[in-house]
């Protein structure tokens, strides 16, 4: 005889998540206070929080935040449009796909930061410099996903479209694009994170305007708690970006098996 299944008290996911963060913050408070690490280089949570509150009251954080978001959005938009258009084109034209495959595999692993000298030569310390890094890093994420998505068009659905004599544009619009969309959304999510990382990296290393440059300035002037406070802001930006992308995903892909869940049939 099997034991009756006892209903187990379920702890909601958000409670667990919050507990995890609080534990992390507590450890971060305790470690410098106990002297395990030098509090000058890793200040306790309370000091970082105080610095963050102070920065939030000032104006320059918000200006920098706006600059970072602007670079990020423009870079992501360029990658997205270019990745989708080229992905659909290369994916649907076998000759182009084969002709570009090796070039893509060669260019893709080139680290974006390796392009910093080129970017500085071309654009100096303007936003375009960082934009170049952002686009270079995030474009591949979109392109590769869209290529995979276009290649995933169901043969039966394709035969259906052909037998009803759908024009090329109709096939792209009603069959290829919806099939590739789940892939494109994954590409967007990956690209969004990568673009944010490269935005901050560019600002920090090249000195283009934004949160990254503030981090660099804080570091150089020895304002360690403020530096960590800015890192926290960058991290929260990343969380927000991911949440936004996920919300978009579940809206755009309501019909997809991964989103629609169980249905009666």
């Amino acid at each position: 005889m099997s034991r009756p299944i006892r209903p187990r008290a379920q702890v909601p996911a958000w409670v667990l998540g919050a507990a995890g963060i609080l534990t992390f913050l507590a450890v971060l408070e305790a470690v410098p206070r106990s002297g395990l690490v030098d509090a000058r280089f890793l200040p306790p949570t309370s000091q970082i929080t105080a610095a963050l509150a102070e920065r939030l009251r000032g104006g320059d954080l918000w200006v920098a935040l706006g600059q970072t978001l602007t670079t990020w959005v423009i870079g992501l938009a360029i990658s997205l449009v270019a990745g989708v258009v080229l992905g659909v084109l290369f994916g649907m034209v076998p000759v182009l796909r084969r002709a570009t495959a090796s070039t893509i595999e060669f260019l893709r692993p080139v680290p974006s930061v390796a392009l910093i000298p080129v970017a500085v030569l071309l654009y100096g310390t303007t936003m375009q410099s960082t934009l170049l890094l952002v686009v270079y890093a995030s474009f591949w994420q979109v392109l590769l996903q869209v290529l995979a998505g276009v290649g995933d068009v169901d043969p039966v659905a394709n035969d259906t479209a052909r037998s009803f004599r759908f024009s090329l544009m109709t096939r792209v619009r009603t069959l290829v694009w919806p099939t590739a969309l789940p892939y494109a959304v994954t590409g967007l999510r990956l690209a969004a994170s990568v673009a944010l990382i490269l935005t901050v990296t560019g600002e920090l290393l090249i000195g283009t305007p934004g949160i990254g440059r503030l981090i660099g300035v804080a570091r150089e002037s020895g304002a360690v708690p403020a530096m960590y406070a800015l890192v926290v802001v960058a991290g929260m930006l990343g969380v927000a970006v991911n949440l936004l992308a996920r919300a978009f995903e579940s809206r755009a892909l309501f019909w997809h098996p991964s989103v629609r869940g169980e249905v009666a049939a």
Binding site: P155, V156, S163
Partner: peptide, 29 residues
């Protein structure tokens, strides 16, 4: 000429409603 395939689940477009699935070839026509 119109074809009905065995694999209805793959022949119908899941992102379109029933009515939109029926209408799409007519629109194209």
């Amino acid at each position: 000429m119109a074809v009905v395939f065995q694999e209805y689940g793959r022949s119908l477009f899941p992102w379109l409603t029933v009515a939109q699935n029926v209408e799409l070839p007519l629109r194209e026509k």
